[in-house]
């Protein structure tokens, strides 16, 4: 998957990963894909909830060792 922006929010607890992602989205354009790296176990579900609320799309979530790689497509 082509990734436009990588946001490293590892070792940050809630709401750090979401706030870091929200900042990155401001700089991204429609269609851009952001990969958020997070170790907070609540991050995947929190990001899905946020995305469904604001209208972006979680494409995939992978876990590599202790790190979640959360792929988000910026829409509209």
């Amino acid at each position: 998957m082509k990734v436009d922006i990588v946001v490293d929010a590892r070792y940050k607890s809630c709401p750090g990963p979401l706030l870091a992602l929200a900042e990155a989205v401001k700089k991204a354009g429609p269609g851009h894909i952001i990969m958020l790296l997070a170790t907070d176990p609540s991050a995947p579900q929190d990001i899905r909830e946020w995305a469904s609320s604001v209208g972006h799309k979680v494409l995939n979530v992978e876990k590599v060792d202790e790190t979640y790689q959360i792929y988000v497509e910026v829409l509209g």
Binding site: C14, P15, L18, L19, A22, E49, W50, S53, V54
Partner: peptide, 12 residues
């Protein structure tokens, strides 16, 4: 502030 800011970031 965690709840208030998270809500605002979610568009609330």
């Amino acid at each position: 502030v965690t709840l208030a800011t998270t809500a605002a970031v979610m568009g609330w």
